[in-house]
């Protein structure tokens, strides 16, 4: 396969149930280029989340490898890799404190220490989803599920990742919040003229055609080319 322009390249990924030979994910290969919008659909338990976690190197891989810009990722570079290929959980995880405390959190990590929290930029992202500047002072436990997901998303987007690995980010949200989140992600994707890419795991067929230009199907830990 031509590797020019490939950002994230999974080659023959395999994972099995610890201590057994039972495959959870088998021989999955996937290449993501700048500009790609890929959706992965499939039934519950088909391995979608596992694949996304493996792509983000959140779990040990039993077989195959993940390349970033055609290079293997050494242990030392894993944090830098994750800051470029960022995984977003289905259920947002927020620390105790205000929305602003949550948005400032990544800047306490060494990998982002050279950047500063940009209040104006964050405010403009929040404005895009109909939240005013006072939203920054809201306490984490006063947020609805949708608002918490918006905070988690803005927290990731402000760091300018190149690839987003989205694990059903709107699965438990209402239609209007889902639309808001899709808009925010689409805006992030379009900003750099085809340099960014996303993989969106969803069980919603309609959403997959809305957010992606290519849809692949997963079943029993294997990737099948879809519609």
């Amino acid at each position: 396969m031509d590797s020019a322009g490939v950002l994230l390249d999974a080659q023959g990924l395999g994972r099995f149930v610890p201590g057994t030979q039972q495959w959870l994910l088998r021989d999955v290969s996937l290449a993501v280029r700048g500009g790609d919008r890929l959706a992965i659909v499939g039934p519950t338990g088909s391995g979608k989340t596992l694949l996304l976690r493996s792509l983000a190197l959140l779990d040990p891989i039993d077989e195959g490898r993940v390349l970033w810009l055609s290079q293997t990722i050494s242990a030392r570079l894993v944090p830098a890799f994750r800051s470029q290929a960022t995984y977003l959980h289905q259920r947002p995880a927020l620390i105790e404190g205000t929305v602003e405390d949550n948005l400032r959190l990544p800047f306490t990590f060494r990998i982002h220490a050279h950047q500063d929290f940009d209040r104006r930029r964050v405010a403009s992202m929040l404005e895009m989803v109909g939240r005013g500047a006072d939203f920054l002072a809201r306490s984490w436990h006063d947020l609805s599920g949708g608002e918490a997901q918006i905070v988690a998303l803005v927290r990731a987007l402000q760091l300018n990742p190149t690839v987003l690995l989205l694990d059903e980010p709107t699965a438990s949200l209402d239609a209007s919040t889902t639309q808001t989140i899709e808009r925010l992600i689409s805006h992030w994707h379009e900003r750099t003229n085809g340099k960014r890419a996303l993989i969106w795991v969803t069980h919603d067929r309609q959403q997959s055609t809305r957010v992606a230009q290519r849809v692949v199907q997963m079943n029993a830990g294997k990737l099948l080319e879809g519609t």
Binding site: L58, T86, R91
Partner: peptide, 15 residues
Amino acid sequence: NLVEMSLTLGATSWE
């Protein structure tokens, strides 16, 4: 979930 969230944003395991 908080530990993993930090990892996804580029934190080292110690962070």
